[in-house]
């Protein structure tokens, strides 16, 4: 945890310095009488840079906490996989249309993330797609990307 926190603190600090430079060089700070678009970004950059440094120093001074008993097992690959699926779903929605992409997305989710059986997967995919279509398209009249075969 401490390793990741240190990396985050360094990113915050370096990000803050870059924002200060960008605000000063590109946006311009203006003067105290007539402040320009870069003033608040510059102050935020200063804040981030300083906080990042303080955090690094605090991490340097504090000891890594001992492992408190058996921790709950966490499956980090599931959120990453689901994020990839969601990005592909966004892309597919425009490419093949809403209904087709939604069906494929739910099937992929149930098989890859949840490891469900085919029958349950298909039932959830069909019901989910129909419910979303009914709510957003039929009742709320949201215009959705058309299906690839109907273009």
């Amino acid at each position: 945890m401490k390793k990741y926190e240190r990396i985050t603190a360094i990113i915050a600090s370096l990000g803050g310095v870059w924002i200060m430079y960008y605000a000063w060089h590109t946006l311009k700070l203006g003067s105290i009488h007539i402040p320009d678009a870069g003033l608040l970004p510059f102050l935020c950059g200063v804040g981030l840079a300083v906080l990042g440094i303080i955090w690094i120093l605090i991490l340097q001074w504090t000891k890594e906490t001992e492992n408190e008993g058996p921790a709950e097992q966490r499956l980090w690959h599931r959120p990453l996989l689901s994020l990839v699926l969601m990005v592909l779903y966004g892309w597919a929605m425009e490419s093949v249309g809403y209904i087709t992409s939604t069906l494929i997305f739910v099937i992929a989710w149930q098989k890859i993330i949840e490891h469900e059986k085919w029958l349950k997967t298909m039932v959830i995919a069909l019901l989910g797609t129909v419910a979303m279509y009914a709510l957003f398209v039929y009742f709320l009249k949201v215009p959705i990307p058309p299906e690839f075969f109907a273009r």
Binding site: Y89, F105, Q110, I113, M132
Partner: peptide, 27 residues
């Protein structure tokens, strides 16, 4: 939760798309 999660994902995706009808909002 295995059923609830994808339903929420579907809901958020079409929900966010409906605001300005652009896929950029999904990304």
């Amino acid at each position: 939760y295995g059923i609830l999660a994808p339903i929420i994902v579907l809901f958020t995706t079409i929900g966010v798309y409906s605001v300005q009808n652009q896929v950029f909002d999904i990304y």
